[in-house]
Design a protein around this nucleic acid. Sequence first.
DNA 1: TCTGGGGTCCTATGCCTT
DNA 2: TCTGAAGGCATAGGACCC
Length: 417
Amino acid sequence: MVALVDCNNFYASCERVFNLSLNNKPIVVLSNNDGCVVARSNESKALNIPMGASAFQYKDLFEKNNVNVFSSNYALYGDLSARVMNIISNFSPDVEVYSIDEAFIFFDGFENIDLQNHCKKLKNQIFKWTGIPVSIGISKTKALAKIANKIAKKYPEQTQGVYLMEGKEKQTKGLKWTRIEDVWGIGSRYAARLKNIKVNTAYEFTQLNRTYVRKEFSVVGLRLLQELQGIRTLEIEHPKNKKAIATTRSQKNDIYELEKLEERIATYAISCAEKLRKQKSVAHIVYVFVKTNRFKENQPQYRNAISFTMPYATSSSITITKCAKMALKSIFKEGYGYKKIGVILMGIVPENKLQLNLFRNENPKHKKLMQVIDQLNISENGKIKFGSEDLGRKWKMRQEKLSPKYTTQWSDILVVK
DNA sequence: TCTGGGGTCCTATGCCTT
DNA sequence: TCTGAAGGCATAGGACCC
């Protein structure tokens, strides 16, 4: 059997852990730059605030209903997530951390254990030790566990937040209850196409012909079909190195000048290179993109991107920044206000499997220099910066409603008097 | 004024090599 | 030396996830 543990309204719940006055009050958490709503408490959902709502459009509604608005506090969410995952790993050796707020648990070899009870204990322990409420769905496959989880979350009184969807009858009932657009792996495009052929529920999807599904929805669709029929096609996945590493941002104000864009691109390139070194890899492709503000329809629009293949794979901030700036120069056009820009590293391989280039290789001094910089950045807690970066911190992200970093910053730890 | 960010996998296509 | 078929590989784009 497979269980899915999902934290309820995770970011909103994190804000509540250290601020009890928020209990039973509406909460929303905003994305980077305080742009749109990325998490809502149940009270906010009841106010019909949609996921992804842009903050400035809902400002009045927030004020009128005393909604508690927060900027995203990833230091806090990341730390609480790690604590939750740690507890989960005590309940089975086979845990897959699927996202910041979700984990699959594989219960192979637990045939003689009462899983309903086992998971109830898990749920209680997570709440007791971290203050985070979770829902747990258990069934034969990952896709079915997702559905069981939705049921647990939707009917907390009946299920106590833990639902074991076992046996043909319960399974069919769950599938019939699930709208096709709510199925894991069915996005808006697929849902529309399925509704066109009168498939409105997960159950109706399971009645489709395999060859047809394979042809129309690729192997991904076929695997999902079998998962929903109770045949395991998705196994536990273990953490792998990333195949792409990105740092991209929307700018508070549109940028017109090449020099300012270069500063931003340099900062993002350096951030990518740091992430790359953290996973002990090197990359040989730098992808740079620029976009104007698509919401300002009366302004001239331009978007372009380029991928630049470097002469050798590297993780040197210096080389990657240099290449990113060259790439930027080749796509920059005068006269546009750039809103969204970013750097993505691709062609990533482990540094120890690097194929040596016969003629051109990294300047060996770079490697040593990067090691020193990374070490200083860890131990000094401050940041060593390159001349091409934003030395004056002029570009700080908008975060007007940031809560304290209760668990990761000494100065923010709560004091009991 | 203000509209997120970071990923994965799969398929079609076109080029290159055998 | 030329030609066509077939497989390998890179890339772009589309779909999805949180």
